[in-house]
Design a binder for these strands. Structure first.
Length: 253
DNA sequence: CTGGGGACGGGGCCC
DNA sequence: CGGGCCCCGTCCCCA
């Protein structure tokens, strides 16, 4: 039986955001039953990617866009002879459901060889186009939005990795618990086998999880990493410092 | 209240 | 580009 830690109870102590804008601060996953979702056919084939189509006009070289021709087509179809600068453009075309649509049927030949993706003006020289493009605002980075939650990512690979946390494709053959990644399942399997491959070099203890060994090593450390800003105490783990703060020694006024 | 262990999540990096 | 792994972290439980 899965333990109750599967349901997060405290959302206020979120870890600092590293890359996400975090406009939607917390995920609401409690209504999701991983096994139920797997059993109802929520496999990877039914997981759709929600693309930010507002950005597509900027991706004028997006040859395998999941929604081709949703933006002014000539801007997406540079001249075959035009050596346009593709550097700011993500060309990830592994969308899966749209494989093989690289030949765009709707690309009228622009009047010039070098076409502006923003206003469809064409120029005969790349320098002229580059000079013209400076008049437009900078191209925003493409964002990849999760269909199941408000999370956004800057790359398709990161989004695919995140979607696995919804689909949970790795299922424990012993207890049926599902995980997002195979190595998470392997770590879980150790709870069944009792394997503890991570040994403490200072004592006889061994752990099934490297993170738990790391936390254990803090008990041997002379200096605690996490210091209370309101008192001289230090703790080996941030969670202990957090509990200490919640217990009354809050940091600051 | 504190300290520590157990189990797991998720992003980033490397191959 | 995808998988494996690492690291950091969370959450819970118990002594």
């Amino acid at each position: 039986m899965p333990r109750s830690f599967l349901v997060k109870k405290y959302f206020r102590s979120k870890k600092p955001n590293y890359s996400e804008p975090e406009s939607q601060s917390d995920l609401v996953l409690s209504e999701r039953s991983p096994l139920a979702e797997l059993q109802t056919g929520a496999n990877s084939a039914s997981i759709g990617l929600v693309w930010n189509l507002n950005l597509l006009p900027d991706l004028f070289a997006w040859a395998s866009s999941p929604s081709p021709c949703t933006s002014p087509c000539p801007s997406l179809c540079p001249s075959p002879s035009g050596p346009l600068d593709l550097s700011p453009i993500s060309r990830s075309g592994s969308g899966g459901e749209d494989e093989g649509r690289t030949s765009d049927p709707c690309s009228p030949e622009p009047t010039g060889h070098y076409c502006c993706p923003h206003c469809n003006r064409s120029y005969s020289a790349p320098a002229a186009l580059s000079r013209h493009r400076l008049s437009h605002p900078p191209i925003p980075r493409p964002t990849f939005c999760c269909k199941h939650c408000p999370k956004q990512y800057g790359s398709l690979g990161a989004l695919k990795m995140h979607i696995r946390s919804h689909t949970l494709p790795c299922v424990c053959p012993t207890c049926g618990k599902a995980f997002s990644r195979p190595w998470l399942l392997r770590g879980h399997m150790r709870t069944h086998t009792g394997e503890r491959p991570f040994s403490c070099p200072h004592c006889e203890r061994a752990f099934a999880d490297r993170s738990n060994l790391r936390a254990h090593l803090q008990t041997h450390a002379q200096v605690k990493r996490y210091h209370c800003s309101a008192c001289p105490r230090s703790f080996g783990r941030m969670s202990l410092l957090h509990k200490h703060s919640l217990a009354g020694c809050g940091p600051g006024p």
